[in-house]
Computed example of a mutant assay.
Amino acid sequence: MSGTKQFDEAAAVLRAAHAFWEKGFAGTSLSDLEAATGLGRSSLYNAFGSKEALYERALESYADTYARPILKALELPDIRAAIGEFFSLAVQALLDTSTPPGCLAAMACLETGGAEGPGAKFTAFQLKVIGDALRSALDRGVASGQLAEKTDTAALALTYTALLRGLASLHKGGQGARELQAIVRVSIGMLPIKAGRHRKTA
């Protein structure tokens, strides 16, 4: 409409995600969000309704931008390659100096997770998405004969989900590339490769 200032909503949401990523939901003020998005307070409310609604949009944007490529690695047919690439990409994302340290989704789990609160439904859904993708990859590994037949894929998927979230916490706490990459190597070693299969070097 003529005379109406236009803005890139998707870009504004992603910038808001970086603000929440830096300070958390509670620590991010409306002034921080104004500075991040370039929108005035009234424009923020008109566009998104509330801080909570913008936070949920920011979490969704974060997942689409940063989490989806990591989950894509689990589609690799070789289970060792899939798990290795999954964790390697997660570490690369954590070490990216163009983004705040840690992981916005992991932060949301710790800060606002549970049945109630901003982003609670998103964090529960995202954990399920990660767990389901991991279990599906592990199930394929069993079905293709790469993993031992009695592998508890549900428990291993849950363990890997916890490990993924733990990587973010460790990085936020100051652990660097060497330590995080060591965890990637251990995660691959946790796979119960079927006896007699050739173990490739990670």
Rank of each mutant, 00 (worst) to 15 (best):
G119E: 10
C103L: 05
L134P: 15
G117Q: 03
K128L: 11
G117C: 07
L158H: 10
P101H: 00
E116H: 05
L110A: 14
D132H: 05
K121A: 15
Y160K: 00
D132E: 14
L164Y: 15
L127N: 12
E116N: 05
E111P: 14
G166F: 09
G119F: 07
L110T: 11
A148I: 01
D139E: 15
D139H: 04
K128S: 14
G114R: 02
G166A: 02
F122V: 02
A120M: 07
R165S: 12
K128V: 11
V142F: 04
C109P: 01
D139T: 04
T161E: 12
P100S: 00
K128T: 14
P118L: 00
E116R: 03
A120P: 15
G119A: 07
A108I: 07
M107S: 09
A120G: 09
G119N: 09
M107N: 10
C109L: 13
A162E: 06
G166E: 03
G113N: 05
Q146A: 11
T161M: 10
A115I: 12
L110I: 12
A157L: 06
Y160S: 03
E111T: 10
L158T: 14
F122I: 01
A154S: 14
C103V: 04
A155W: 03
G102L: 06
L127M: 13
A154Y: 07
C109I: 14
V129E: 11
I130R: 02
L104H: 11
G141E: 00
L156P: 05
F122T: 02
G145F: 05
M107T: 08
L138H: 04
A155E: 09
P100G: 02
C109F: 12
A137D: 02
A106E: 13
L134S: 07
A137R: 01
E111A: 10
M107K: 15
I130A: 05
F125W: 12
L156Y: 08
P100F: 06
G117M: 05
R165M: 12
L127H: 11
A108Q: 13
C103S: 14
L163G: 10
A105H: 11
S144H: 10
D139Q: 12
L156M: 07
A148K: 06
A120W: 12
L156F: 10
V142E: 03
T161D: 09
V142N: 01
G113F: 13
A133R: 04
M107C: 02
T153S: 13
A108P: 14
V142D: 04
F125V: 01
I130S: 00
L110G: 09
A154Q: 14
A115Y: 14
E149M: 02
P101F: 00
L163I: 12
T153R: 01
T161I: 01
G131H: 03
L110H: 10
D152V: 07
A155G: 04
G102A: 04
L158P: 05
I130F: 12
T153L: 03
V142A: 03
L127S: 13
P100Q: 00
G119Y: 07
A105I: 15
A108N: 11
R140P: 04
A162M: 13
P100N: 00
A105D: 12
D139K: 10
V129G: 01
D132I: 06
G117P: 15
A148T: 13
A154V: 12
A157H: 08
A157I: 07
A106I: 05
L110C: 09
